[in-house]
Write a protein that binds this DNA or RNA. Structure first.
Lengths: 123, 123
DNA sequence: TGAATCGCTTTACATTGTCAAGTATATTTG
DNA sequence: CAAATATACTTGACAATGTAAAGCGATTCA
């Protein structure tokens, strides 16, 4: 009793996983090693990062290349399909620069304080 | 010791919250009431949905309009800024139809089985 | 020699999301 | 007329998910 297959829905399913968009954005700038990527993503802990990268490899968006085991040296880079996510990131970029400005924290302001000024600037 | 303000990063922060992209996509099709929206989003439970909608209202992407309290009748619709997220959804749509096809579940295949065929079709 | 780096994994804990049920009332159905 | 269904959520208990901190084995750097 599956629904019809909906590509957009599927895509959203994995894009909304925490850190995935950040990871993709980071990898669009070039291939990186694990720690390097971790730093550039910022805030994602290694356990989660490892899990996300595994998943992204499985679905074919990222490829992992191990250059040497000891000393460890690994590279994660986007596949062709992965690189095409650039359009998505670009769209987010355009929206963000058009609508977001410094000010209030965007992420989950605890709705308790006073009036809360929106981060969005009216068009 | 704040980082420089980066709009894209901020945007990703809220877009990656679970269900947000689904909610936006759904609302792009037109305003909806709570249960209606819940059904169209599919799988998000009311507690989470209520929380997400609150947040989306706070940051100015969604507006809530209460038509009557009893019987309850509410409408959620995108603001101008919200509607402009259409470009983001459209980009996801394009990517998805180009790269995803029915087959394996995309969401978190437990990496234990045999060889796992990717849902992505090569270009 | 000792610190830092590499790519992770492990464990314990905190945050987050979900299920199921419930609230108050109006409209629809039998 | 009574029951079912709908509306918009909230609540509480519980499960899934994410995180912090530490650590591993080895090499490079000062």
């Amino acid at each position: 009793m599956e629904q019809e297959f909906c590509p957009v829905h599927e895509a959203i399913q994995f894009l909304q996983e925490k850190w995935v968009l950040h990871i993709v954005r980071s990898l669009l700038e070039g291939p990186r090693g694990f720690n390097d990527l971790s730093r550039s993503v910022g805030g994602c802990n290694p356990a989660t990062l490892a899990q996300r990268l595994d998943h992204l490899c499985e679905i074919g968006v990222v490829r992992k290349e191990v250059q040497s085991l000891m000393p460890p040296r690994t590279f994660y880079h986007l596949t062709g399909a992965g690189r095409e996510l650039q359009d998505v990131i670009a769209a987010i970029d355009r929206w963000a620069t058009a609508h977001l400005r410094p000010g209030v924290e965007l992420s989950h302001p605890v709705c308790g304080g006073g009036e809360l000024q929106s981060t969005i600037r009216p068009v």
